[in-house]
Simulated scan of single mutants.
Amino acid sequence: MTTTLQFSKGQGTGNDFVLFADPDGEVDLDPVTIRALTDRRFGVGGDGVIRAVATRAMPGGAVEYVGADHGTEWFMDYHNADGSLAEMCGNGVRVFARFLTERGLVTLAEGEPLRVGTRAGVRVVERSPDGFRVDLGAWRLEDGEPTVRARELHAARPGLPLSVGNPHVVVALASDDELDALDLTYVPVLDPAPADGANVEFVVPSDPLVVDGVGRIRMRVHERGSGETLSCGTGAAAAALATRHWAGSAAPSSWLVEVPGGVVGVTMVPGDDGEHVTLSGPAELVFSGALGL
């Protein structure tokens, strides 16, 4: 039996996704179908697939992810382009908010929070002047001192491991030329290799690093399960956090991160469970269509 999938294509600074609504959790998303949807030549194309499921329709009501937070109506079921599950996606959750509001699935007034369930827990999204802002939650430095090898990077470099709800390793480079020369069609090699993999960000600070109290960096990223992408929201947050860590206590808490697909804003703010990090930037729906599955 053929199922017609009504989908939208969305993007946030070039980080693109196939999105569709499945309130009752009736669509079986297997890795083969996901890879077909995200194929840029034979499918819609995207860095991942986002299924909008009513939290009540998730197994166990998604209680392990949203707990007793009954205000979380929608769950963002996110899959990488290779079909693997991911904890969450910073740009993806902002595009998800755009999808829910433009499809009339939620109403979101200026300043009103939208609570979204993810496998990393509840994330709170609100409208911002440039699109949508999401609180990515408390972040943390991880243990270990991994080294990173990448194609056209002529020696292994130290990486800083940290979590923004999903795993990252951030590498500082010396110049724009070094950043531009990287060939990220090859997967960077981490030593030791994390059991569940990690997103790897390569960062160059701007000169000057801080302008009008705002830090500025450039970044490229290889995403676990998707390859190099034009942007990675949690990766931008990780890159800003790592740069502030390296720069020391006088470094600012607001950052602009330039990625190949544009610019996103990252801000560190106090939280009850530790310091949180927020991500803001554009989030747009590009087109909609229908596919037979």
Rank of each mutant, 00 (worst) to 15 (best):
G45D: 04
G45P: 02
G45S: 06
G46S: 12
V49L: 15
A52L: 12
V53M: 11
A54I: 00
A54L: 14
A57V: 09
A57R: 06
M58G: 04
G60M: 13
G60V: 11
G61N: 11
G61W: 05
A62H: 03
V63Q: 14
V66S: 06
H70F: 02
E73I: 01
D77M: 13
Y78G: 01
H79V: 02
N80H: 05
L85F: 08
A86C: 12
G92K: 12
R94P: 02
V95R: 03
V95D: 04
V95M: 03
A97W: 02
E102N: 03
E102W: 04
G104F: 07
E110N: 11
G117F: 04
T118V: 11
E126K: 08
R127H: 12
R127F: 01
R127K: 15
R127N: 03
S128I: 06
P129M: 05
D130S: 14
D130C: 03
L136H: 06
G137N: 09
L141A: 14
D143K: 12
G144V: 12
E145T: 14
P146T: 09
A150K: 06
H154W: 13
A155E: 15
A156S: 15
R157A: 12
P158T: 14
P158I: 05
P158M: 04
L160V: 14
P161V: 14
N166M: 09
N166E: 09
V170N: 03
V171S: 05
V171T: 10
L173Q: 05
D176A: 14
D177Q: 14
